[in-house]
Write a protein that binds this DNA or RNA. Structure first.
Lengths: 238, 238
DNA sequence: ACCTGAACACCGTTCAAGT
DNA sequence: ACCTGAACACCGTTCAAGT
């Protein structure tokens, strides 16, 4: 197995500083995101990120205050990327179900586009405890609540919907990207002990093929549909 | 603000080695768990963990193969701790709803007992992609599937229930402990910018009080009830 | 058998110095 | 204005050496 990583830093690093694209916060965040996606979060260090950008680690501190802030920035940029998704960002026109479904699919697209980085969206502490992942910004919370209000949700119904919607998304997407990330992960994984491992567990053994099937997309749709029914109840009740 | 941490290592460290409780894998895992719970995961290093146990970091490598394995062990011990919960571990007697509810509550108790460490249960890669958090072990998956089978679930219905059950738990519990962890977190947190922060977001501003309320327990029960209804459908359908 | 000291390679971060 | 070299305190981990 070759190590094609070795010359990646050179690609940018070999040009003299004057000829390089100047550093910027956005360029750093973008590089960090693609680094995480290709090499995993644990491998990301300020020094290696600097190398990718053809610069010493210390230069990064001109643009980001430190590693923690860098990761917060990466999360923020992922969440913000939905703002340019034309399918997501439009007021409700075809009812609140359509509104929420477009939003849910938009977030799912972001998660699937960045399976290795998405767990950060799920687990980094938010600015306030009521800014729940994966919506994490006041901006998106406002968008969510305003949309539902406009569609006839009372204040308490909208807040209940917000809570139900976020836990739904978090559970489904985190599990989906975890399964993806594991598959895309280190390739030296133990290959398919399949039957052997489940030998002592008869029920799991019997269902081992069904357990391995991946119906993530269909499950997501189904559970989303179910959530909509629940929200319809909440809407009419409170 | 004082630093009461300073003498904690001494408490164990001051006794001569001969008088100390001998090191063991379990003792190390337990110390790691309480360390995470009191100081947070980022603060946990092999060196500091050694100090807590009155020992040099290098000694730990006799019992755990490295830091990654240590964290896996902590997760494993949390998941395994449910096996000693008498309310959880008994075959279904009062129907599958009761069976699943006891299991769900048991996992929730573990999560709430270790809010800072539980995110590890959610995000550490499992041994196989179909061993879904927060059930993570073949043991628990077998327990789950066997229980449902015994209660009249077909194989495909049991597997579908397994998927729905795990994403439900993951979403709810991760959000719940994240909110807890944030509150228990560093106390130098910015205190209550309350109204100020939401000023530019009228809907969120209007609902700011409702948004701050914590109904985690009630929401959990409600969503669990809803899940049961969905599983009843799955049971009768497939 | 169990623990340690010294060492290595790697971190995040600061700051005075270079251009 | 922007980047770097050198330095500091801290990591995980290995291994020969101590008791």
């Amino acid at each position: 197995m070759e190590t094609p990583d070795a010359d990646r830093d050179v690609v940018e690093g070999q040009q003299p500083p004057s000829a390089r694209v100047p550093l910027s916060r956005d360029r750093i965040l973008e590089a960090a995101l693609t680094y995480i996606e290709s090499d995993g979060l644990p491998g990301l260090s300020m020094r290696r990120l600097g190398a990718v950008l053809g610069v010493e680690a210390m230069s990064l501190y001109r643009y980001v205050e430190g590693r923690e802030v860098l990761l917060d920035g990466v999360v923020e940029s992922m969440v913000a990327s939905m703002e340019f998704d034309p399918d997501v960002l439009q007021e409700p026109e075809n009812g609140w179900q359509d509104f929420l479904q477009r939003l849910a699919h938009g977030i799912r697209r972001v998660a699937l586009a960045h399976p290795k980085a998405f767990p950060l969206v799920a687990s980094r502490p938010t600015e306030a405890p009521w800014l729940r992942p994966p919506l994490r910004s006041l901006r998106w919370v406002e968008y969510f609540l305003a949309g539902l209000t406009q569609e006839g949700f009372s204040d308490t119904a909208a807040v209940r919907a917000y809570r139900a919607f976020t836990s739904f998304l978090l559970g489904h997407l985190l599990l989906e990207v975890t399964m993806l990330g594991a598959d895309l992960g280190p390739l030296d994984v133990i290959e398919e002990d399949d039957d052997a491992s489940t030998a002592d567990y008869p029920t799991a053994h019997r269902m081992r093929h069904a357990l391995r099937e991946n119906h993530a997309a269909a499950e997501f749709e189904e559970a989303l549909e179910e959530l909509m029914n629940r929200l319809a109840l909440i809407r009419s009740e409170s």
